[in-house]
Design a binder for these strands. Structure first.
Lengths: 358, 358
DNA sequence: ATGAAAGCGCTAACAC
DNA sequence: GTGTTAGCGCTTTCAT
């Protein structure tokens, strides 16, 4: 293995200078930097990240904790975070806390606290105050995505506003009998997201003076949405003219259920979701785009502004360029600890919603 | 930060003994081990993984390289690998090579070679001989999942056998006019998987003496399968009585297309896929289960048998128990370098296939 | 079975 | 702007 010493010798400088030249930390004359860079390249030198980490105290690695990986939303957030991190020379180590309970503690004790990461991104996972405190005590910034984290900044979606928006879209179309497909008890663990979404819809409906909606719970999957929609649409007496599902996957299930019942969407029933899932376009689904990939990128921004208070977004060569769509609405990444950094969202109207039949 | 020294003092032993006691490497008397363990616990000591890595040369971290994350198959493989690694005290750092080209080289040079990982798992990605050679030269085992890797062992699916199996299922039902939805040029990059699957089906069809099938390309997505199926099923003169799609997502798209054309599945047309996707059951899809999560676990097994030639699967406390479903068919993880370790698969017959109408 | 000592390969003060 | 000097916190021979 070629070490820093060999490069130093080859370039005729000291190891310290090589370190400075290659890392960009500390002053080095252009000429020297040039020679060092060349020597390193010729020798095929790459810093040992472990040695570098030990000496500097930085690992250039961030841990991302997620409750699932298979679901579209989570993989999208991770994808965005990974890209943003790579661009800055950081790695993303994945912790899938599917199991909960004992497994969760294990990940905490054995992995996150071992100094393997410089920071952690918690996606839709409510870390306990104790967990956050310990992480912060070790000097490791934490940022949440999708919900508040006690004592740490978090990018949060205003779920009430989101569901109000999609519901108001339906109301503005003239719907008054609206059915809701929300989360069931089980999926309410993380941040009461299902509950918030239900409340937002209910508020909008109440404010419009419409009768309170019938709500059927489901598990955020297509089959779950299908079953729930069957309940709603099968009612021979008070079939809703519109359905708001708390997620696109459930909304897609609802569209399939409507078809199976011989109902036309949006002719007989309008159906809307939340997420802007990959498949939303295919199904012509009207929804609210939540931009999960961008959420991942924003989380990294927030982390970096804490890791490097002076942040000129350095770029590793040969790495993807930043995705600046929506940069205008970028939340302030320097929000104080514990603050909720709002995430933006957009109504996307497609063909699954229309005026109710007269 | 409490270091090994403090624990040593508290337990009345030397740092070396603490290291041995806690890592299990080297002889320590039961009594001493007990005292050390207790002291470490009381002081809340956790080894610094960077220091440990630098001194030992092992990082207890493996890199997983994938071309996508959003697709069901990949996230399932990663999920399996992550679980299996966690159980053994290893981390999984994720490299999403979505971009290809320059980005790919960057990941290679700046990340994988920096000594951040002890091994790498390449999922459906054909590393070049040079890439593999450099990794192996650094003593880092590589294992492939989904396709062969020059010079490294790989868990490979016999795609020909898989597609023959599903096609033969249809033939045994009495179908003779079978349509194929395969991959298009673009998706043929990785291991010619689409091509192999097409060949398998064609072979089975030819051997049965049926007319050669019409093949329509698609991109492995639901919308892609939908469009392709419309081509196949819209033919007024020679509509196939059965369709084999090279992936479940495309098969699902085909089912939706059939419905939109007013065709009954399986009454008018039988449709089968490959994968056993999460949604396959919901759509009643007959398919071949590929068990991607298990593939991830097997990849880790193969890696570990190289990392620790004497492998009694150690377990980190509070970590999920091994998933032994299908352990009977576990491939030999000690296959020689460059060997193709076969992966198992199972036909899953549901309600999307039946005898053709008379 | 245990301890002493020598690094692992780099970074960061600190001098110059 | 550059070199010197100490470590970073562990693991691992090598003795004992």
């Amino acid at each position: 293995m070629v070490g820093i010493g060999e490069v130093a010798r080859a370039a005729g400088v000291s190891a310290a200078t090589v370190s400075r030249a290659l890392s960009g930390n500390g002053p080095v004359s252009p000429a020297t930097r040039e020679r060092v860079t060349r020597a390193a390249l010729e020798l095929g030198y790459v810093v040992s990240s472990t040695a570098s980490s030990l000496a500097s105290g930085r690992t250039k690695n961030v841990g991302a904790v997620v409750p699932f990986l298979g679901r579209w939303y989570f993989s999208a957030v991770i994808e965005g975070a990974e890209r943003a991190l790579l661009r800055r020379g950081y790695d993303l180590t994945l912790y899938n806390l599917a199991g909960g309970g004992e497994e969760r503690r294990s990940v905490f004790e054995h992995f996150l606290l071992r100094g393997r990461v410089d920071a952690v991104i918690a996606v839709s996972l409510e870390l306990t105050a104790d967990e956050v405190t310990r992480l912060l005590a070790l000097g490791k910034p934490v940022v949440g995505v999708g919900g508040p984290i006690p004592g740490a900044p978090a990018l949060t979606m205003d779920d009430i506003a989101v569901s109000r928006l999609i519901t108001e879209h339906l109301i503005s179309l003239g719907h008054t009998r609206i059915g809701l497909i929300g989360g069931d008890r089980e999926s309410d663990l993380d941040f009461h997201l299902p509950t918030s979404r239900r409340h937002g819809s209910e508020q909008a409906i109440a404010e419009a003076g419409c009768p309170p909606p019938r709500v059927v719970g489901a598990d955020f999957t297509i089959p779950g949405g299908y079953r729930a929609a069957k309940q709603l649409l099968g009612d021979p007496h008070a079939r809703p003219t519109a359905i708001v599902a708390a997620s696109d996957e459930m909304a897609i299930g609802a569209i399939l259920a409507a078809r199976d019942l011989g109902l036309n969407v949006p002719g007989d029933v309008s159906i809307a979701g939340i997420d802007d899932h990959d498949l939303a376009e295919f199904f012509g689904l009207t929804t609210v785009a939540l931009h999960p990939t961008r959420q991942g990128e924003r989380a990294v921004d927030a982390l970096m502004s804490r890791l490097h208070p002076d942040a000129p977004v350095p770029t590793v060569p040969g790495t993807p360029a930043p995705d600046d769509r929506g940069a205008v609405h970028a939340p302030d990444p320097d929000a104080p600890a514990g603050a909720a950094i709002p995430l933006d969202f957009d109504l996307v109207v497609r063909s699954s919603t229309a005026r109710p039949a007269v």
